[in-house]
């Protein structure tokens, strides 16, 4: 073995080898730029057209204005529809999160007879196309002479949100170390206290995530809503109905605001998580 000979010239990597290595390393990053551009083009369109001074039909660019943002309710139907969507979203999220979390705890924490068929009942609504869910529920309401409208829509939303809540919360429960609960019991906490002081705080981020997911699913749903809402107008329904003759630019204001609001919530959530992890 030779000892260090530091006088030797420093060998450098050939230029073409560097280029091909650089490309090999960065081809995916370049792809990522294209991918994200593709993802954001429609969002950019929605955002840009929220500044369009277009009156009723917002399909063609006219001129720039802040008016739509200053007065989002300038087209009153938009705000009315938005209000309905938010109300339905809150109610559906609350019920679906409660019911779904209970199911998630049952499946995630207990061994019992019928566990696998329970999983199947959770999986099936997710494997059924929305149109079938919407149409079948409408048939049931009609059978019992219940008129479509606000509450049937809430029920429909709770129904399709439950499965997503169960799956999300269950994943969080499965990632918990059971030793934590054992440690709590070892330190004199009874079952209820263990649940309240250890299990629930640890599962809480999963429940919060599930609730956010449920709200966004409910808020964005069109197909099931269309079947069960009767004459009630929700935000997606409003956009659909007015798509043919042109959507008021205020709808773009609402859509863009939703985008920024949700982005803020998620980013803040991430930051809180990272801060806690430190």
């Amino acid at each position: 073995m030779t000892r260090v000979v530091q006088d030797a010239p420093i060998p450098t990597i050939p230029f073409n080898a560097r280029i091909s290595r650089w490309f090999g390393r960065n081809v995916l990053r370049i792809y990522m730029i294209f991918g994200f551009t593709y993802l954001f083009i429609p969002v950019a369109y929605t955002f840009v057209f929220s500044f369009n001074d277009a009156g009723k039909s917002n399909l063609i660019w006219q001129s720039f204005t802040f008016r739509n943002w200053q007065n989002p309710c300038g087209a009153p139907e938009v705000c009315n529809a938005l209000g309905n969507s938010i109300k339905i979203g809150f109610l559906a999220t609350t019920f679906a999160t409660i019911l779904g979390t209970m199911i998630a705890f049952a499946i995630g924490r207990y061994q019992f007879k019928g566990r696998s068929s329970s999983n199947l009942l959770i999986f099936l609504p997710m494997a059924t196309p929305e149109i079938v869910l919407g149409a079948s529920l409408l048939s049931l309401f009609l059978l019992f002479k219940i008129n479509p409208g606000f509450w049937p829509t809430v029920i429909a939303h709770v129904m399709f949100c439950i499965s997503f809540v169960v799956v999300t919360v269950k994943a969080r429960i499965a990632s918990l170390d059971p030793k934590l609960e054992q440690a709590a019991m070892d330190l004199y906490a009874n079952e209820f206290e263990t649940f309240r002081r250890v299990t629930l705080p640890l599962v809480a981020p999963g429940i919060a995530g599930a609730a956010l997911l449920a709200f966004s699913l409910s808020f964005d749903d069109f197909i099931i809503t269309n079947f069960n809402s009767g004459t009630l107008i929700t935000f997606p329904k409003f956009v659909y109905v007015s798509a043919a003759r042109g959507i008021p630019a205020q709808a773009n204001v609402i859509g863009s605001s939703m985008f920024f609001l949700a982005l803020t919530i998620v980013v803040v959530g991430q930051l809180v998580k990272e801060r806690k992890a430190r």
Binding site: M32, F36, L39, F40, I41, P42, V43, Y45, T46, F49, L59, I60, W61, S216, F219, D220, F222, F235, P236, V239, Y240, A243, I247, A251, N252, I254, G255, S256, M258, F259, L261, A262, L263, V266, V267, Q270
Partner: peptide, 28 residues
């Protein structure tokens, strides 16, 4: 951050996104 960005476009309404594609692919 990138994971958030992948999902972010889908926070705008499904319907608005579809209408945006109609504009993108349209004559204008």
């Amino acid at each position: 951050i990138l994971l958030v960005l992948v999902v972010a476009p889908f926070f705008t309404s499904f319907l608005l996104r579809t209408v945006a594609w109609k504009q993108i692919l349209g004559e204008e």
